[in-house]
């Protein structure tokens, strides 16, 4: 009898969990006609890792294309050289010493207070600085972009249903670069009408590593970079997770044997 009841519990639990699994994303996607194709990302799966060269190219795409409108609110330059980051160098465990990171920080202008006069002044960035805001405030951002505020990109991937697949689909989802009153058609965008002009064209930039910069390649690379930016500790989390699993599995086994040993003289 116990078995029947346990089975009934289990069946209900499994059936309902799968119901949730199906219903929640389907609803959250917004109900439009847009289709998000699943991509075979290297960071998928329990052992997935980020592709370092792709992240590095992706940073270049962000710097040369996206950063004219979109900020990286939660990133500092030093994060680029963190362990697991796109420009990590084992020789410089402190990313503030990493020459590549230092050079990137110098590419940016940050606001500081002049230490002699107290006046605001512009300066070149150092690794400890945060990525600067692109617009002084949301009103200015909306005013320069046809009324739509360009969202922060540092956590854009966790902040969108579909994650990396959605961002890639969005970047490759334009069917023409013609707008109707400043609105473009994009098959991936909920509702299909987006104010962002198609940002990527073949050979828009010249990759430092010589990869051919097709628009799809750039979309893929910048998505890889943004996936890291949204979840920079994913690799360490998965590694520790695997060790934890291994430990818990063996521990559970030992506890089970102990339990059986303790109960061996008790009929139950």
């Amino acid at each position: 009898m116990l078995k029947t009841i346990t089975k009934a519990f289990a069946t209900v639990a499994i059936a309902s969990t799968s119901l949730f699994a199906i219903s929640i994303p389907a609803k959250a996607a917004g109900g439009g006609e847009h289709k998000i194709e699943k991509q075979n990302w290297g960071f998928n799966g329990p052992f997935g890792t980020y592709n370092r060269p792709a992240m590095q190219r992706g940073y270049q795409v962000y710097k040369e294309v996206c950063s004219s409108c979109h900020a990286l609110e939660h990133l500092s330059f030093r994060h680029l050289g963190d362990k697991g980051g796109p420009f990590y160098d084992a020789e410089f465990p402190n990313p503030n010493d990493n020459p590549v990171v230092k050079a990137f920080a110098k590419d940016w202008t940050v606001e500081r207070i002049d230490q002699d006069s107290g006046d605001p002044m512009d300066d070149t960035g150092i690794p400890a600085d945060k990525f600067p805001d692109i617009f002084p405030n949301a009103i200015a951002a909306a005013a320069s972009n046809g009324g739509a505020v360009p969202p922060d990109l540092s956590i854009i991937i966790p902040a969108r249903t579909g994650g990396a697949d959605y961002i890639f689909a969005l970047l490759t989802g334009y069917d023409s670069d013609e707008s109707h009153d400043g609105v473009y058609h994009n098959a991936a965008f909920p509702g299909g009408a987006i104010k962002m002009a198609p940002p990527l064209f073949d050979d828009l930039i010249e990759y430092a590593d010589g990869t051919k910069a097709t628009s799809e390649q750039m979309a893929r690379d910048v998505t890889e970079f943004l996936a890291w930016s949204g979840d920079p500790k994913m690799e360490v989390r998965k590694t520790v997770g695997f060790a934890t699993f291994l430990f818990l599995f063996i521990f559970a086994l030992l506890l089970f044997m102990t339990y059986k040993e303790v109960w061996k003289d008790v009929e139950h």
Binding site: K238, F242, T244, F245, L248, A252, L255, T258, V262, W263
Partner: peptide, 25 residues
């Protein structure tokens, strides 16, 4: 103790496996 502490400890370890699945993956 020790009968249900051991049984519960095993159940807790299994529960932690599910917990860890969500936390890490």
């Amino acid at each position: 103790h020790p009968f249900y502490t051991m049984k519960d400890a095993f159940a807790i370890a299994v529960f932690l496996l599910i917990f860890a699945l969500f936390v890490f993956y």
